[in-house]
Design a protein around this nucleic acid. Structure first.
Lengths: 211, 211
DNA sequence: CCTACCGATCGGTAGG
DNA sequence: CCTACCGATCGGTAGG
C-alpha cells in the first residue's frame, strides 16, 4: 500500500541483511520527514527545495527521491505523519464536553515548545488555500473534521449544563479554532504571546464550571 | 523620497509630454500593484514570479523592473498601499471604545467581498514569520500596532462601563485579532463561513451594551 | 543510494 | 519601456 519503494518492494524476499537495510531505510525516512517538517515550516512548500532537504540529511537529492518519489508525495507524508502524532497526543479518540475543550488548551500549551510544528501548519494552511495546491484537500478536510468534533464537544457541554446560556456550539467551535490559528501566528511573531492562557480565558467565559 | 525611477526622476524637467508620460506611468504602477496583490495572494511572495506579474500587465519583466527595481520593493509597495487603503477605510484615525470594535466587524464584513486582499494578508503573514523574510518587519510592526490600538478600544469601553466584568483589555485585544485572522483562513477554505457574524457574537458576549 | 544530465524557470543586468 | 543575455536553481530522469 505504501507508495514508496524500498519499503514493500523488498518485503517478499526479505533476508536478514535485507531486513537490516529495511530498518535503515525506515530510519532514513524518519530523518527525511523530520528535516522536511522544519524546512516546509520555515519556508513553506513552494519555498523549500528537495536539494535543501536532501543536504540536511546528508544525501543527494535523487537519493531523497528514492524514498519519496515526488516533492508532493513528501509533503503529504509529512502532513499525515504529523496528524498521526497529534491524534496519539489527544489520547482518547473523541474527547467529549468540557474535557474535550481542556484538551485543546493542553495542545496549545504543548505547541509552545514545538515551533517547527506550529510553523508547518501555519505556513502550509495559508499556502494551500488555493484549490490547486497539493495540500488543499488535506486542509479543507482537516478544518471540516476539527470543526465538527469541536462542535460536538460544545454540544455535549451544553447537555451537561456546563455551557453559559446563548452560546451556540457551532459558532463557538469556529471561534475556538480560529482563535487557536490566529494565536499561533501572533506567537510566531512574538514568542511572549500566551497561547494557552488566552485560549483558556476565552473558553472559561463560555462555561458555568471551572475549566 | 520614492525609490522608483520614472516617478521623481523626470519631475524636475517635466514638460506637457513628460507629464502625460508620468500620468501613464502612475496608471501602469497602479495596474502592476493590482496584479501583484492578486498573485502574491494566490501563490505567496516566494511562489510568484516577476514574469507572471509582468505578463498580466502586458509588459516584459524588465519593463516591470523599470517601475519597481526589485521584487522586494514591489512587495513592500503592495503592503504599504494596502495599509493606506485600509486606514482610509477606517475613516476616523483612532476609533475608540465600542465604536472601534464595531469598525473591526465592519472590516470583516467588507473583507467577504475582497478575497484577493484576504488572501494577500493571510498568505504573507504566514510566510513572513521567518525573520529574514522581506515582509517580516512589516507584519511584526503591524501586529504590535493593531494589538495596541484594539487594547485601547477595550480600555475605553471599560471606562464607559460597557465592558463585562472580568474582561481584560489586552487579552481581549489579542483574542479579537487572532479570531479575525483565523476566521479569514476558515473563510478561504469555506466561503460559507460568516466572518462578521462570528466576530460580532464574540464581541457581544464581552459587552454590556448592544454592539 | 550515486553521478550526470535534462529543460524550464528564476531574479537581475547590459545596452539601447 | 524593449531584446538578449547572465549564472543560479528548480524538480525530475537516465543509468547504473
Amino acid at each position: 500500500m505504501s507508495p514508496y519503494p524500498g519499503e514493500e518492494a523488498s518485503r517478499p524476499t526479505m533476508t536478514a541483511e535485507a531486513n537490516r537495510g529495511y530498518a535503515n531505510g525506515r530510519a532514513r525516512q524518519r530523518e527525511i520527514l523530520e528535516k522536511a517538517v522544519a524546512l516546509f515550516g520555515e519556508s513553506g512548500y513552494r519555498g523549500t527545495s528537495l536539494r535543501e532537504i536532501a543536504a540536511r540529511c546528508g544525501v543527494s537529492h535523487p537519493g531523497l527521491k528514492y524514498h519519496f518519489p515526488t516533492k508532493e508525495a513528501l509533503l503529504l507524508a509529512v502532513l499525515e505523519q504529523r496528524d498521526e502524532d497529534d491524534s496519539a497526543r489527544m489520547a482518547a479518540d473523541d474527547p467529549v464536553g468540557v474535557e474535550g475543550l481542556r484538551r485543546l488548551v493542553e495542545i496549545a500549551a504543548l505547541n509552545a515548545d514545538r515551533r517547527v510544528v506550529v510553523d508547518l501548519f501555519t505556513s502550509l494552511a495559508a499556502e494551500a488555500t488555493t484549490p490547486d495546491h497539493p495540500a488543499h484537500t488535506f486542509f479543507a478536510e482537516r478544518y471540516r473534521k476539527v470543526i465538527a468534533a469541536t462542535t460536538a464537544a460544545y454540544e455535549h457541554a451544553r447537555e451537561q449544563g456546563h455551557l453559559v446560556a446563548g452560546v451556540d456550539p457551532a459558532t463557538a467551535a469556529r471561534q475556538l479554532l480560529a482563535l487557536m490559528d490566529g494565536l499561533q501566528v501572533q506567537w510566531l511573531y512574538d514568542p511572549a504571546t500566551d497561547m494557552a492562557g488566552t485560549l483558556r480565558a476565552h473558553i472559561q467565559r463560555q462555561l458555568t464550571v471551572p475549566l
